[in-house]
Every structure is written in structure tokens, then in C-alpha cells.
Design a protein around this nucleic acid. Structure first.
Length: 872
RNA sequence: GCCCGGAUGGCGGAAUAGGUAGACGCAAGGGACUUAAAAUCCCUCGAAGGUAACUUCGUGCCGGUUCGAUUCCGGCUCCGGGCACCA
């Protein structure tokens, strides 16, 4: 054993051992408990960033810990390899997305190996390879035949200069990121997954998902957004509209119908279109509404604008004429593209009504005498829903919210002017992308047969890999060799679909493919899928709380209904890792876009409190803008490269530091101060083990013969096992588990090594340290476990159990408070009764001093903890 | 704008069912060892007051419940994530 801790050698040797032994390759083993531990697979962006290190270390710690509990642990890895960054790199560097992606994968795989992850690489999957996406295409064709996938028109961001569709991310302040052109909305036909058909199940299953964080379940519930309301039909006012007809709106508040004072429709609504035919102002406004991005955040934060159409509809209960407005905040394609407005009871309607001097009719009032209504008190009194009743509502006056709801809906139904309706906020999932680097949609457009799914024997539809996109449209549209084909039904000349699928589709089922990654007979091999699924523990960033996790849940149910898997949910337990965030820096480009600089390219001036004042680019010394602290990402270029740290300190130190920095679910502002401490701790562990091993053989531990001092040390060892096991196994808080081991090291370093039993006790302590650290710092523990005399590797050792008898204490220290303030401690026998503790506390000199002349009103005794004496 | 989180010393964080606020570590200061440096070891380390014993204040802000609140409740502020084409 070398005297110095040499991570480079130790880590290379341990990694070599695992590779030679194929330590992490697993097969189905009957009778052995399985544990499927999965971290979200990475997009091969180029190099690992700190968020990756955090994510995959957490997963690795859990996988290795579960293995030490004796389970057959599967931890696979793969690549979410389709996506926009590869196309952007292609445009920028004139390199094919495929080549760029494969190069990144190779580099990142080497980094994973260096981190010492316990991955079964024999199961590696790559989503941009035909052996993977052919099954995605196959599933698409099955679902298309079932009607789960259908085609309809959807709205996208259109860059009129680059003649290309833009992702929301590529629209900056309403302009195209490369062209700087004002973005327009454009409607194009797209394929949709009918996720709304599963809305109810996706919602109700959440109630049984006890292994998921409440936070994530709440977000998903709100996203699915089941609401109870009514469709209401307003007859057209024939005089102003010019034709007979009805306007349909959906509302969750039919109880406020008596307060509706106008209706608002989207720019694309037929009423708006009709009114615009000979109204220049309206035509211009409708055109304005078609500008800007489709992102909901943009829609919701833009100034609410509207224009009267000059048309009216008839209130179904009062017969009043209500004006029809076109409003930019009403979205076409969501619901009916029309809303009824009740300014008195909706903040947005209230603001709009004030802006355009529309009437405000209050129809509910609080039983609270002070119910003066204004915008400020709106929330207050409305929150008091249980205590409000209808006013100004004719026959409904005096009814509470629920009764008014029921009464009004019943009357509407009787007059055939509406009906009760349950609706979801969740929308169907549009998956068509007008992009090259994605999985081709397996559809052929035939002039006579229409859209025909590609037959199974013609799959996969292979995406050509040697293409370099130029940023204008989808290059597949310029490749007749790709799109020219024959109709599978009639054999006539036909055109292949050139849109590709949303990359969320690949990441919605990859976890299932890992069970049988090379299976050629189907999407999954049934036996393997049933053996491994569902995933026991899934780990990934909280930013995926809704979209990815909801889509994967949806896909699992689709696969279940296809008979591919036999469970209802894909991920039994979920750990949502907090993001690693870092400061961003940028400069404005002449065209209004932003150029982002990595933190390692800038120097920052701080004030005396450490707050950043200004930043300059190192290369030219000129200032850059400090853009705020955000999630480390490729697009903001604020990822910190962990490679430097791995090279300097080794993987174990990096892993230890990352796990010690904070609990896994908390977001973490990146700073490397503290890495030295992690490095120091590794050296301390090594040094103590070296001294012990170097001192030669040791005796077995004779527990009965231990002195009181030795018992104290042994108590520390077993208390640490107890706490650390709880931290790792129950709470998944690795930072406190590490703190426990550090505390134990502090004890062991001070422990005497004079007698044989001292040395035997130290041996037990060192073994404990190595076992507890083994999942976190696997390389050093691999080496030290051997040095401590074991012939089987530490990855197959058993997680330590604590000895209850070692924890027994004769006396306990009890806190004494007077009026809730700490005033002293007393030592009492562990067996003392409440009365004995109280008597001892009352006799304490500090208590006597603080109580003085006061009368003791009450004494609270919390067993084993404290006594509080209340006096006044 | 809407939904979900977070805020504790100079810094990262701890406090597992409402019970000692600051575990563990970083940084800093002082000391030992050394020719010197590094490494290592020892001590101090929330704020204010006090020679000291000690006292008072202190977990983003305002209020409430309780013998007792970082923890529970109500109202805010700021920061982060998501908002359906970033992944």
C-alpha cells in the first residue's frame, strides 16, 4: 500500500477491474430481487457539465447502495441523440449532425467511464440509430391505425426571412434569432398524439404514486387541469352579424353568467373574420394578432388588446345584447376560441373592461358587510367563496356559488343553450417537426389513398446521415431520393412525409428498451420487459417535472394497451434533482440577438459583500452584460466543465464534493470552493487506513471486554451507521451521510491505538468508513477494502448493520428551559421517570436563579429531550 | 401573467413528529512543527454589549397560533424552474 493517496492510479485500477470483470453487466436472475435504477439519459451536447455530474453521481450512489443491499441492479445508459443543437452546430460548423453527435457521444462516454459510473454499457442505446427508432416508427403506425395519432392543423412560429419554422427558444423578443425578422404565426397540418384520451387516467394514477415528490404530482395535476364547467351557446344577433348562428364558449364559472357583459373571440374566429371583411381597422388588428410567437408565456405577458367587431350576441338568460370583441389574449385552437367575459369576477376581464369602458356587473357579494368592490379587494372577498351569494341575478339572487352554478346550467340545458361539461387544460401533443435531425414520421402521402402508414416490412424509414442543413427549412424537402416513393397501398407515385418527430417521443419509451436493447423481434422482448419494469428509481432534473415525465407516463400506458408492458406507470420512485445553476454573461449582437459567454471566459468584479458588479471578457478586456443566474445550459453557455476538476483531483473527490455540496433535490449555485476540503478528506481516510494496515495484523474484536472509552468509540461507529443508513436509504440525503462519516473520521483519528482491542476497534471503524463511502467514492473504497484484508470487491460487500446494543447509553443529557429559553443541562439516568427528571430540573441552580420569585405555572417534560419550566 | 419550488453565519449547508439554531465542511484569523515553504496538527470563528461570569438580539419581511416556531397558519418581497418546438 502506497503511503500517499494517488487517485489517478487507484481510479484507473478500479475501473480496469470493473471492466475486466464486467462487474456491472446484468442478466435476469430468477429469485434475486431486481432493482432498476435509471438516470435520465443525456443529450450528447459535447462534454459533461456539472448538472450531468450531479445527476449521474446521484444515480450511481443509489445503484451501488442497492447492490450492497443484495439486489440485482440494472443501471443502463444511452443517448438522447436527436435534437436541435446538432442542427445548429451543423449550420455553424458545416458538419453533419450525425458526425457531430457521434463524436460527442464518444467523448462523453469516456468522461462517464472516468467518473466511475456502475453502468451496464452492453445495453447502450442511441436514439438516432435505426435499430432504435424503427420501433418508434412501428409504434407510430400501430397508434395511427388505432386513431391515437391523428392529423390536424396547428400553429407554429414562422420566420419569413429564413423561410423556416422556429422553436420557441429561437424567438427572442418576437424576432427570429438568426434573421432578426418579426416572427409570424403560421398554421400547418401536423400529427398529434391523443394524450387527452388518457387525461383522466394520467390524473387519477397520481394519487397512487407514493414514490413521487408531491411537488411534481401537484405540477402535473395543475397541468392536466381538470375543470368542471359548461358550454354556453349565445345566439347571434342577426341584425349586426348578418347571419343566423350560435357562438359557443366554455366557462368554469357559469354561476357568473348573469354578470357577463361582453364576449371575446380569437383573431382567427369566424365571427372576427366575418367582421373584418369590410373593416380596415379590424383587418389590421387581426394581422397584428398573427404576429409574435406562439409561446404561452409571451401571450400571457403581452399587453391585452381588443377591438369591437360591431357585432352582438344574445345573452341566453337575459336576452341582452352583448358586444363581440376580438382580443389578442383569446387563443384559437384552445377550447372554442371564444370566451364570455365577467369583469366583476375575473381579473383579466376586469382589466380589459376598464381599458375599453365596458360595463362591470357584480353578481356575487360577500355576506361580509364591508364588500365594497374594487380591483384590490377582489381577491380577498372572492376567496370567501363559501360566504358569497348571488346579487343582481334575477331569479338566482341569494343562491350560493354552487347552487347558482347548478341552477343556471339546468336552465341553459332546458333551453338547449348550453350543457354541463368537464374539460381538461391538457392539449393533444403535436409531434410534427419541420426539421431534419429527428426520427422520420412513417407516413406516405398518396394522391389517391391519402395518408398511408408505412407497412411494418418497409420499416425503418431511414434518415440519411450525411446531410448538412443550411438553416432554411428542412433539407429533406430538397432530397427527392428521400421523399419520392411508391404508395404502399396502390403502388402509385407518392410522397414521403418529411417532417420528423418531436425528440420527446424518443425519450418517452427508452427506459423500456433498456430491458432488451438489441431485440430485433419487437419494441421490447416481453420476458425482459416484465422482469425489469417498472423502473424502481428514476433520477433527473426538476425541469422535466411536467413535459418529459408526463409524456413518458402517457407512453407507458400506450405500451401497456399494446400489450408490451404489464404495469400502469413507468417510474415507481422519482428523485427530482435540483438544477446546477450559474451566472450567465452575454453581449448584444448587431441584429438584436445575444452572444453568450462561458463563465471561464470572463472576469468578474465583486463588491465588498461579494455581489457581482461588472464583468469583462478576458480575450478583449471589454465589458459583457451579467445576465442572471440560470440553469447550466448549452444555449446560455454557462455550463462549467467538470473535466478540469476530474483531472486535478480525481473522480472520487469530485463525486464526494458534489454529493456533499447540498441535498440532491435542492438547486445549487455552482462554486468550486470546497473541493479542497473534499480532497483533504479523501487523504485523511487514506492516511488513517495506511497507518492501520501498515501496523500489521490485528486481533478480533471482543465486545464484552471493551473499556468505557472503547464503548464510546464503538457507540460512535454504530450511531454513524444508523444515521448514514437512514440518510442514504430513506431520505436520499447524501450530504448528511457524508457529514456523518466525517464525524466518525474525527473520532477514529483521535482514538488510541495502544492495545490489541484498540486496533480491532479501529479496524471496525475503518471498515465502516469504507462501506459507507463505497457508493459515493467507489475507487478509493475498492482499493481500501482489499487493503483491509478482503478478497471479494467492495461492490459486492454488504451494507453495514448497526448494533443496537452498542448504542445503549446509561445517562442522558437533558436540556432545561425556563419560559422556552435554554438555561442549562442536567444528566439523568436513562431509566429516570418523568417525575424524577422534573424534580432534578426544579433543583437545578440555574432554574432556581431564573425562576426566582416567580410562580411556576407549568412544567413540560419531553422524554429524553428537555424540560421547560413556565413561570411568571 | 399562470403553476411549482427556494430563502438559515463571510460561503455550501445541518436541525428525521413543534423542543438546545448553526452539525459537517469551506474561507478567514491566531498558534505549533519546519532553515523555509507545502503538507499536517491545535485554537478562535452569527451580531451587539461586557474585564469577565454572562446578557440581549438573531433562520428573507409583516402578523398569528403555542409553554416553546427555521418547522404550523395568513399576508408579502426577492430568487430559481416550467409554460406545450431547448432538452
Amino acid at each position: 500500500m502506497h503511503e500517499q493517496y494517488q487517485p489517478r492510479d487507484i481510479e484507473a485500477a478500479a475501473q480496469r477491474h470493473w471492466a475486466e470483470q464486467k462487474s456491472f453487466e446484468v442478466t435476469e436472475q430468477a429469485g434475486k430481487e431486481t432493482y432498476y435504477c435509471l438516470s435520465m439519459f443525456p443529450y450528447p451536447s459535447g462534454r459533461l457539465h456539472m448538472g450531468h455530474v450531479r445527476n449521474y453521481t446521484i444515480g450511481d450512489v443509489i445503484a451501488r447502495y442497492q447492490r450492497m443491499l443484495g439486489k440485482n441492479v440494472l443501471q443502463p445508459m444511452g443517448w438522447d441523440a436527436f435534437g436541435m443543437p446538432a442542427e445548429n452546430a451543423a449550420i455553424q460548423h458545416k458538419v453533419a449532425p450525425a458526425a457531430w453527435t457521434y463524436e460527442n457521444m464518444a467523448y462523453m462516454k469516456a468522461q462517464f467511464t472516468q467518473l466511475g459510473l456502475a453502468i451496464d454499457w452492453s445495453r447502450e442505446i442511441t436514439t438516432c440509430k435505426p435499430d432504435y427508432y424503427r420501433w418508434e416508427q412501428w409504434l407510430f403506425t400501430q397508434l395511427y391505425k388505432k386513431g391515437i395519432i391523428y392529423k390536424k392543423v396547428g400553429t407554429v412560429n414562422w420566420d419569413p426571412v429564413d423561410q423556416t419554422v422556429l422553436a420557441n427558444e429561437q424567438v427572442i423578443d418576437g424576432r427570429g434569432w438568426r434573421s432578426d425578422a418579426l416572427v409570424e404565426k403560421r398554421e400547418i397540418p401536423m400529427y398529434y398524439f391523443k394524450i387527452t384520451a388518457y387525461a383522466d387516467e394520467l390524473l387519477t394514477s397520481l394519487d397512487d404514486m407514493h414514490g413521487w415528490p408531491e411537488q411534481v404530482k401537484t405540477m402535473q395535476r395543475n397541468w392536466i387541469g381538470k375543470s368542471f364547467g359548461a358550454d354556453i351557446l349565445f345566439d347571434y344577433d342577426v341584425d349586426s352579424v348578418g347571419i343566423d348562428g350560435q357562438l359557443k364558449v366554455y366557462t368554469t364559472r357559469p354561476d357568473t353568467l348573469m354578470g357577463a357583459t361582453y364576449v371575446a373571440v380569437a383573431a382567427e374566429h369566424p365571427l372576427a373574420q366575418r367582421a373584418a371583411t369590410n373593416n380596415a381597422e379590424l383587418t389590421a388588428f387581426i394581422a397584428e394578432c398573427k404576429g409574435g410567437s406562439v409561446a404561452e408565456a409571451d401571450m400571457a405577458t403581452m399587453e391585452k388588446k381588443g377591438l369591437p367587431t360591431g357585432q352582438f350576441v344574445i345573452h341566453p338568460l337575459t336576452g341582452d345584447k352583448l358586444p363581440v370583441y376580438v382580443a389578442n389574449y383569446v387563443l384559437w385552437g384552445y377550447g372554442e376560441g371564444a370566451v364570455m367575459a365577467v369583469p366583476a369576477h375575473d381579473e383579466r376581464d376586469f382589466a380589459f373592461a376598464n381599458k375599453y369602458q365596458l360595463p362591470i356587473q357584480q353578481v356575487f357579494a360577500s355576506s361580509n358587510p364591508d364588500n365594497s368592490f374594487d380591483a384590490q379587494t377582489w381577491n380577498d372577498w372572492y376567496a370567501d367563496k363559501a360566504h358569497v351569494s348571488a346579487v343582481n341575478s334575477g331569479k338566482y339572487n341569494g343562491l350560493n356559488v354552487q347552487d347558482a352554478f347548478d341552477g343556471i346550467v339546468a336552465d341553459l340545458e332546458a333551453q338547449q343553450h348550453g350543457e354541463r361539461k368537464t374539460q381538461f387544460r391538457l392539449r393533444d401533443w403535436g409531434i410534427s417537426r419541420q426539421r431534419y435531425w429527428g426520427c422520420p414520421i412513417p407516413i406516405i402521402h398518396c394522391p389517391s389513398c391519402g395518408d398511408v402508414a408505412v407497412p411494418e416490412d418497409q420499416l425503418p424509414v431511414v434518415l440519411p446521415e450525411n446531410v448538412i442543413p443550411d438553416g432554411s427549412g428542412n433539407p429533406l424537402n430538397k432530397m427527392p431520393e428521400f421523399y419520392q416513393c411508391k404508395c404502399p397501398s396502390c403502388g402509385a407515385d407518392a410522397r414521403r412525409e418529411t417532417d420528423t418527430m418531436d425528440t420527446f417521443v424518443e425519450s418517452s419509451w427508452y427506459y423500456a428498451r433498456y430491458a432488451s436493447p438489441h431485440y430485433e423481434g419487437g419494441l421490447v422482448e416481453k420476458g425482459a420487459a416484465d422482469h425489469w419494469l417498472p423502473v424502481d428509481q428514476y433520477i433527473g432534473g426538476i425541469e422535466h417535472a411536467i413535459l418529459h415525465l408526463l409524456y413518458a407516463r402517457f407512453f407507458h400506458k400506450l405500451m401497456r394497451d399494446e400489450g408490451l408492458v404489464n404495469s400502469n406507470e413507468p417510474f415507481t420512485k422519482l428523485l427530482t434533482q435540483g438544477m446546477v445553476i450559474a451566472e450567465t454573461y452575454y453581449r448584444m449582437r448587431p441584429n438584436g440577438g445575444r452572444e453568450w459567454f462561458n463563465p471561464d471566459q470572463v472576469t468578474v468584479e465583486h463588491d465588498s459583500k461579494g455581489k457581482a458588479l461588472s464583468a469583462t471578457l478576458i480575450s478583449d478586456g471589454q465589458p459583457v452584460v451579467i445576465g442572471g443566474i440560470e440553469k447550466m445550459s448549452k444555449s446560455k453557455n454557462n455550463g462549467v466543465d467538470p473535466q478540469v476538476m476530474i483531472d486535478e483531483y480525481g473522480a472520487d473527490t469530485c463525486r464526494l464534493f458534489m454529493m456533499f455540496a447540498s441535498p440532491p433535490d435542492m438547486s445549487l449555485e455552482w462554486s468550486d470552493s470546497g473541493i479542497e476540503g473534499a480532497s483533504r478528506f479523501m487523504k485523511r481516510v487514506w492516511r488513517l487506513a495506511y497507518k492501520h494496515v501498515n501496523a500489521g495484523e490485528h486481533d478480533g474484536l471482543d465486545i464484552a471486554s471493551l473499556t468505557d472509552e472503547q464503548k464510546e468509540i464503538r457507540r460512535a461507529i454504530h450511531a454513524v451507521i444508523k444515521h448514514a443508513s437512514n440518510d442514504v436509504g430513506q431520505h436520499q440525503k447524501f450530504n448528511t451521510a457524508i457529514a456523518q462519516v466525517m464525524t466518525l473520521m474525527n473520532v477514529l483519528e483521535k482514538a488510541p491505538v495502544e492495545t490489541a482491542q484498540d486496533r480491532a476497534l479501529l479496524h471496525e471503524g475503518l471498515e465502516t468508513v469504507v462501506l459507507l463511502l463505497a457508493p459515493i467514492t467507489p475507487h478509493i473504497c475498492h482499493e481500501l477494502w482489499q487493503q483491509l484484508g478482503h478478497s471479494t470487491p467492495v461492490i459486492d460487500a454488504t451494507w453495514p448493520h448497526f448494533d443496537e446494543t452498542a448504542l445503549v447509553q446509561d445517562t442522558l443529557s437533558i436540556v432545561i428551559q425556563v419560559n422556552g429559553k435554554l438555561r442549562g443541562h442536567i444528566d439523568v439516568p436513562a431509566t429516570a421517570s418523568r417525575e424524577e427528571i422534573e424534580t432534578a430540573a426544579r433543583a437545578n441552580e440555574n432554574v432556581l436563579r431564573y425562576v426566582g420569585d416567580l410562580t411556576i405555572r407549568k412544567v413540560i417534560v419531553v422524554p429524553n429531550k428537555l424540560v421547560n419550566i413556565v413561570a411568571n
